[in-house]
Write a protein that binds this DNA or RNA. Structure first.
Lengths: 156, 156
DNA sequence: ACTGAAATCGTTGCTGC
DNA sequence: GCAGCAACGATTTCAGT
């Protein structure tokens, strides 16, 4: 766990830089620099400041899973028998590549998952063969995403 | 909607390139090239092929919302009165910056959201003032993420 | 906090294997 | 499908103000 003890003071220039790069992490720094009327070096200085403050975590290439044949996105609420089995369950869940997110949540479920599968048959297999097989998992409730309408990060 | 009609044939070299850049979209291409023992130009050729195939959607700078004071992540199931109001509801949801994801789902809810707020008070305000205020929204069920244990993309 | 300069890298297009 | 090369632009760092 990284400790963030740096004060973050973000001005409009920082926001402009971040908003550009949040859309396209490989957008040329000099292009942003020309838009802002400052030098490329100034942008780099600000980026280093924002990294040091812990605001910038990194960058990711975003792929379209449909092209790889992954078309079924689902959310799964997991009921666990006993609280003590949670960390072991998460460890097992981490070994299932279809599990993209895993949250401890308030409410009915102990654990809440986002999983991505090739199709419904694959989803059923992952649920029955992989997730239900984990010790402590008593029951699951599955919600299939028929269509995702919004996908974004928080506005800076 | 982009039409993907390209056949995708991804070999081990493509996978290596993608896995590197999915971890860090700004990782130097020449560094990857040296690891693989091929030229930088060859990597660029493959990246163009993968973009043309629609597998590469883009890249994103990933920020840590906690540094901006956003600490409460929640999932919200939304009940809508009538099916006809769904597109209008989504349109309104898009105007709420705290809404990061929005899915049409199978099961009890019409719509399922991921939302990010500064704290529980802010969450309550967004639920009561913004989401419940949307025409057609009859009820919501909220699950707060106490801790996110897994966050990743599908393995290529 | 920013500029300007200098070295390295990114990117494209070419020729040839 | 890849190498090697060339040309131009971008990245990155650092001294200087």
């Amino acid at each position: 766990m990284k400790i963030i003890d740096e004060k973050v003071n973000i001005d409009g220039i920082d926001k402009t830089i971040l908003n550009h790069l949040m859309e396209d992490a490989r957008k040329p720094i000099l292009e942003i620099a020309r838009n802002l009327g400052i030098s490329g070096a100034a942008i780099h200085q600000r980026l280093r400041k924002l990294e040091k403050a812990g605001l910038i975590e990194g960058s990711k290439l975003v792929i379209n899973p449909r092209v790889l044949g992954y078309t079924t996105l689902a959310f799964v609420g997991v009921y666990l028998d006993k609280a003590i089995s949670n960390p072991q369950a998460v460890k097992k869940l981490r070994e299932i590549p279809e599990v993209l997110e895993c949250h401890y949540t308030t409410g009915n479920w102990s654990i809440f998952l986002k999983i991505l599968c090739r199709d419904n048959e694959h989803l059923m297999k992952v649920l029955n063969m992989n997730i239900q097989a984990i010790e402590g998992v008593s029951r699951t409730e599955t919600f299939i995403s028929l269509d995702q309408q919004i996908q974004r990060q928080i506005k800076v």
